[in-house]
Structures are given as C-alpha cells and as structure tokens.
C-alpha cells in the first residue's frame, strides 16, 4: 500500500477541435481525491465538469485532444494506458454512476442479467454471481431483491433504478467511483435517501468518490472537500466546511449567494451572476472570471492569476488572495 491519493489529476488540459477553432475546455486542472474521501465537483454547465469526467473515464470523443497532463489512479497513469488496458480497469478499479439511470440500464434485459453480466471478470458460477447481485441489491435497500432481480428496469421507480445503478457500480468495490449528478433527476426525499445510502456504502467499501453536481446543498451534506470549476479552470478547492464558511474566490462567493437555499429571508427577486461565461476559443490572457467579477482590479485583465492558498482554501485562483500582487 502506498500513500498515493486515490485520484490525482495533474495539470490536465483538454481541447476540442471545432470549425471556429480550438476550444480549450480544460486548462491546467490539478486536484487530488484522497482514499476514502468524497470530493464534490461544482460548476455551471459548460465549465468542463463533463469533459473532466469523460477524460478520467477515457470516454472522450474523437474531436477532443488531451494536450497535457497526467491522471493517476493510485499508481497507474490512466493517460498512458491503451484501450484494452483502460477497459480492464473500468467497472473494476474505476466505475461511474450517471445522471439518468434509465439511459444507463439496458431496457430489454432483466436487472439480474445485467448484474451478473458485469461480473464477467470473476471466475464464479452463475449461482454465485446471482447471489452477489442479490447481496448488492439488498445493500442498496431494494426490498425483496431475489424477486426484483428478474424484473426489467421499467418495473423499478426512478429512485430504485438509481440505487440499482449504484449497486452495479460498487459491485467490484472500485478504488474510485465517479458520480455524475446522480440525484438531479430525483425528488428531495429520494435525493437525501440516495446520498445517505451512497455515504454508507462508501464508508463500508472505503472507495473514494468524485461527486459531480450543481446542487450546493448536496455538496454541503455529502462531501468532505469541494472543487469549484469555472470556464475550464479549477478556481478554488478546499475543505467543504472552510469554503462554505468563507469562500475565497469571488466566483464561489457569487455562486453560493445565488443559491435560493442560502437566502434566509423570502425574496421574490433572486440574485444572479450578471454576464455570461466567456467563449473558450480565444481565452482572454487575464483571469477568466474578470469580465463578470465585481471585485476586479488592475492586474485581472492582463495577468493570469497563479494558484495560492488562502483562508481555509488550499487553492484559489485569484489576484485578490495573492500576497505578491499589490492591491
């Protein structure tokens, strides 16, 4: 056993080839997810969350190119693996739960068939695999698992389907689980049940979880640490409590302020972040958030901020927090 983090992303840059030019979707992203830790990844649509997830899982499309960086899963650099080696890893040491369980489950096969199929690596009898599937369904609190195993996905409710997807993802007890907005399609009561379940299973299995979401309440309840992305860059990361107490990056601060759950007094007019996310084909030389930032000052337009530790955050990409930049 080494003390390496479960996942370590180093200086990752990914771009897409588009008719208008090279779209630089991820630029110099670095972060770690420690063993047994649940890390949140938060950001608006188009900030690069999905690109990051696809890069880690090796699912990037043909128009995408990895320009630089390393992705370490324990002591394996995923970016040096070929397709076959990557394939061997997926569903074993690395697995994922996606947003829509109806789309990730095969509608024409029974749950049981799908749950035994994905155990193809195990040398065990069908009965053993079936027993393992029943055990997993029981763990995700599906009542009467032996009977439910012979049913099709459409016979399950939305919340149950997502729990089945979680059971399948955790079946091989992976080192890292990537959960891409797994509760977005669920209602409040189911959402809480699902994240509580995820936490219990995570503690039992001891895997690390990268939880992608834009629901800040879920991050606050579930995650040990959070990573905040904006326009292809990681702008802040640190312990959940520290960041919620005192966000260091102006974007984090505004994002939190926009969340209706954060506003205690009832108000008909909700805050927004004026302006739009910049195009990523011609990325401005300065800070990417500068055009929308209420706190921008002289260096923001021309100089790209360097990562610094500030307050309770381990990394902030903002000139305001950099002691070497004069105010």
């Amino acid at each position: 056993m080494t003390d390496r983090p479960a996942l370590s992303v180093r200086n990752l840059s990914v771009s897409y080839d588009t008719p208008e030019g090279r779209l630089r979707a991820l630029r110099g992203v670095s972060f770690d997810v420690q063993k047994g830790e649940i890390a949140g990844l938060v950001g608006e649509s188009g900030c690069g969350k999905s690109t990051l997830m696809q890069t880690i899982l090796g699912l990037l499309g043909g128009a995408a190119a990895i320009e630089s960086g390393e992705i370490w899963l324990g002591d394996t650099d995923l970016l040096t693996l070929n397709r076959r080696q990557m394939r061997r890893l997926l569903g074993d040491r690395l697995s994922a739960v996606f947003q829509d369980p109806m789309k990730s489950l095969n509608p024409v096969l029974t749950i049981g068939r799908q749950m035994t199929d994905i155990q193809f690596r195990r040398k065990a009898s069908r009965a053993d695999k079936r027993a393992r599937a029943i055990e997993m369904l029981d763990k995700v609190q599906i009542p009467d698992p032996a009977k439910r195993l012979d049913q099709y996905p459409h016979e399950f409710s939305g919340g149950m389907r997502q729990r089945v997807a979680i059971a399948m993802a955790l079946m091989a007890e992976p080192d890292l689980l990537i959960a891409d907005e797994p509760t977005t399609a669920l209602d409040a009561t189911l959402e809480i049940r699902t994240i509580e379940l995820l936490r219990e299973l995570q503690e039992e299995i001891g895997c690390a979880v990268l939880f992608i979401t834009h629901h800040l309440g879920v991050v606050a309840e579930l995650c040990d640490r959070i990573n905040i992305m904006y326009a292809g860059e990681l702008v802040e990361h640190g312990g959940t409590r520290a960041i919620f107490d005192a966000p260091q990056h102006p974007y984090t601060e505004l994002l939190f302020a926009c969340d209706p759950a954060q506003i205690k007094e009832r108000s008909r007019a909700l805050p927004t972040i004026p302006g739009t996310v910049p195009g990523l084909i011609d990325v401005p030389p300065g800070c990417v958030f500068a055009p929308r930032c209420p706190k921008r000052f002289a260096p923001c337009d021309s100089l790209h901020p360097r990562p610094v530790a500030s307050g309770g955050s381990d990394l902030v990409l903002c000139h305001l927090r950099d002691p070497k930049v004069p105010a």
């Binding site: 409040a188 959402e191 309440g217 309840e221 409590r241 919620f244 939190f256 969340d259 759950a261």
Partner: peptide, 21 residues
C-alpha cells in the same frame, strides 16, 4: 425536512419515510 441544507455545520432533524410511494 429532506430539503438539503447548505450549511455543513447544521445537522437537520429529518423525518425519514419508509419505503416507496
């Protein structure tokens, strides 16, 4: 009570519902 609270310090008292609709 199931509404997630954006406050890592708060431990909300939840009323847990059994089973499914």
């Amino acid at each position: 009570s199931a509404n997630p609270v954006v406050d890592p310090e708060a431990a909300p008292e939840r009323i847990t519902l059994e089973g499914e609709m």
